[in-house]
Amino acid sequence: MRLASVPISAWIGMAGIALALVCALFAPFIAPYGETQVVGDVWLPAGGDFLLGTDNLGRDLLSRLIFGARTTILVALAATVLSFSLGMALSFTAAVTGGLIDQLFSRFNDLMMAIPTLIFALVVLAVLPQHLWILILVMAVLDSTRVFRIGRAVALDVAVMEFVEAARLRGEGHLWIIFREILPNTLSPLLAEFGLRFAFSILFLSTLSFLGLGIQPPAADWGGMVKDNKDGIIFGISAALVPGAAIAALAVSVNLVVDWMMKRTSSLKGGRGDA
């Protein structure tokens, strides 16, 4: 792969992701003020000391945005990694073992997917106590159903290939078949899928926080910041739009990179990449 063949849209996406990551990693060094520090009046306009103005409690919006990047990305990434590990482990086991285990896993997955994710999350979060790790776990479990379905389809595509049969005939164990024969041949579509799930997790987390069920105040996170500042909208105060735009920008960035990766994998399969 040559760098020149990477399209401009993918570069934009990667730059966006890099910016968000830098904010997340070095938040305390970059942010001009503290995360929960009240620095001025309520809903001050942008400019002057406060580059993006202040929020509904008089905290610096830019600082909260930078700290929010940390929470949002950390939680979304943790949920995605967890959901991916869970979904991949189960789906590959199902695809390689086949038979009853496959039937059992697949039918249960169908059942989980019969309830829309957001509705499922609302029902479950209504019962469970509000902890960060519970939130991550719920997001991961619900999202792993999607990973399972795709992981199983991708693994089955490869598992029916003759080189896998050849490995079986040789007497190789499940672990060799999964890690040495199937996994290396599914990496690119799965990488794209990981990006997709990450973008989804960011949006999902933000939605939950916006509905008041995600990350709890006073910690800053982008969805919650929209919720905090939404009452300003009718007075023409755009403080709620700033974190909203941040969410959108990050999700667009991830999707741009994913779109490029998907085009690459589809051309790997010999397709023209437009179907």
């Binding site: 290939m161 003759e162 080189f163 050849a166 005939l169 007497g171 040495r180 024969e181 041949n185």
Partner: peptide
Amino acid sequence: SKEQLRRIQMIYQMADTAMNPR
């Protein structure tokens, strides 16, 4: 057994799909 498997080997029609491309 592994030994029984060793003694019978197979060659496929499509060598493309019979070998791991990676």
